[in-house]
Amino acid sequence: MTEKNESSAAETLLRVEHLTMRFGGLLAIDDLSFDVGEGAITALIGPNGAGKTTVFNCITGFYKPSSGRLALRHGDGTVWNELAMLTDSGARSVTTGNGALFLLERMPDYLVAQRARVARTFQNIRLFPGMTVLENLLVAQHNRLMLASGYTLLGVLGFPSYAHAERSAIDKARDWLDRIGLAARADDPAGDLPYGAQRRLEIARAMCTDPVLLCLDEPAAGLNPRESAELNALLLAIRDEFRIAVLLIEHDMTVVMEISDHIVVLDYGVKIADGVPDAVRNDDKVIAAYLGVAEDQVGEAEAEVGL
């Protein structure tokens, strides 16, 4: 058992341990632990109000969890050895020769994106509607461009280093626009795009920040079947070509079952299942949570779920 944990630990990218989030008297997440594997698609599913988005907000630094540890690694698996030391030191992160380790619960939201390189999208799309598609993708590369513009000073004076950096940023943006099929609309305002294109653009924008972990909050919501299939292809490309881990909240089970490597099921803030798609699909607790149970079985089911 211990051995198995050790071996999977080397492939773990993000480790969520005993995450608890309280809003006043409401316990939104109760002692949740799961792992996100490197280069894998992990789906976080559950009925409405299960606390999925709250988990996202904790991971990306928008909420500060009431308790728990959220550790993310860069580089190879050996940096996990630093975890205990980092936790005790009170620091946000530690960098070793082989990589770095970050404790996300200690970092403000923008540093989670900037340093720990966790990118996210939102359930209700949050593009910059009055800016063009291209500008949206350039804003995502802000920190690199800021450095190249000498924190604005060299840029105002017109140094060539910035022009060069901007060109490569535009190239990267164009690359993503080709990939999501929006190259022809690069100079249109993002608010003018149809809904499905806005969803794809938001994913491309998140990818332009060069993340190690991409958190997608219901990327398939409001998409038609064809767009859904395109989304699946895009996410698989992100996983296989870029080797980027994806953490996904989704209600669309065709998306979830088709592309996920690993599924975590949440109900009322509690983890009720965790495993590969086939195992989760046949799990009694999951079926009960989604479909409900017959009235005479309620007591039994509640006991089983732990309520």
């Binding site: 540093l111 900037q114 949050r126 910059f128 804003v139 920040t209």
Partner: peptide, 14 residues
Amino acid sequence: EALREDEIACRSLG
């Protein structure tokens, strides 16, 4: 300008 458009999105982009 991005800040004027959506502050939360800005923070999510670092």
